[in-house]
């Protein structure tokens, strides 16, 4: 299936101090196609994370809509949005691992409610761990990992269900150049199975991308297409 995700007149505003609203995203219209790497750059605080979270169904837009395969998922009720999130793999900027769980259990987390057997969940998670070269840390608690290892764990957790939509927020921020390249290659690999991959990152990474990408810049609430 050729999936795509579209933002139509998407705006997000947060209420700030003194009841003033601060506009973060302003009337964004864009379509992210499947099978290609989509890179969103922009200065700190531009709203990259907000855009990813809105598309992933973690928050609702103030106006406009997120359309996935002709379905306005941002308008769906809570229960249906829960189902939409099952199709998405999310990598958070701050990883958001569950500290009481081991690395392996963190990666198993998205598989548990899907109704697979424990052994299936385990073997899938181990395969994902091997992809990010963290198999030797499987039994360690998440809070004992370094920053880069946490990010690798978060990437493995997002990819373990082989989702059609991947939203990665600064996925390589705490990694060295070599690990960063490997993880970006892994995300590129997902475009090979026709997934929609959207990565929010700094501009510095653009010249180190291992393959072609659709690049956008988010600034002052507006998203501009940079180059292919």
């Amino acid at each position: 299936m050729n999936s795509k995700i579209t933002c139509r007149n998407l705006s997000v505003a947060f209420s700030g101090e003194n009841s003033r609203t601060r506009s973060v995203l302003d009337n964004i219209n864009v379509t992210f196609p499947a099978g290609k790497m989509n890179i969103i750059t922009g200065p700190i605080g531009a709203g990259k994370s907000t855009l990813l979270h809105t598309m992933a169904g973690l928050t609702r837009p103030t106006s406009g809509e997120v359309v996935v395969n002709d379905q306005a998922v941002s308008r769906w009720s809570g229960a249906h949005r829960d189902q939409w999130r099952r199709q998405a793999g999310i990598i958070f900027q701050h990883c958001h691992l569950l500290h009481e769980l081991t690395v392996l259990e963190n990666i198993m987390l998205p598989l548990i409610p899907l109704g697979h057997t424990v052994s299936h969940c385990r073997s899938q998670s181990i395969a994902a761990l091997k992809q990010v070269a963290l198999f030797h840390h499987a039994g360690r608690l998440a809070n004992s990992l370094s920053g880069g290892e946490r990010q690798k764990t978060a990437i493995a957790r997002a990819l373990v269900t082989q989702p059609h939509f991947i939203f990665a927020d600064e996925p390589t921020a705490h990694m060295d150049a070599e690990n960063s390249r490997q993880m970006m290659e892994l995300l590129y690999h997902c475009t090979g199975r026709n997934a929609v991959v959207i990565v929010a990152t700094h501009e510095s990474i653009l010249n180190r991308l291992p393959g072609p990408a659709l690049c956008y810049r988010l600034e002052n609430g507006a998203l501009n297409h940079l180059t292919d």
Binding site: L58, A79, D82, Q83, H96, P113, L114
Partner: peptide, 15 residues
């Protein structure tokens, strides 16, 4: 917050 992370990972309210 753990519940929020679980929901982000595809857990429904029912789960």
């Amino acid at each position: 917050s753990d519940l929020g992370i679980m929901k982000a990972m595809g857990w429904t309210t029912g789960d």
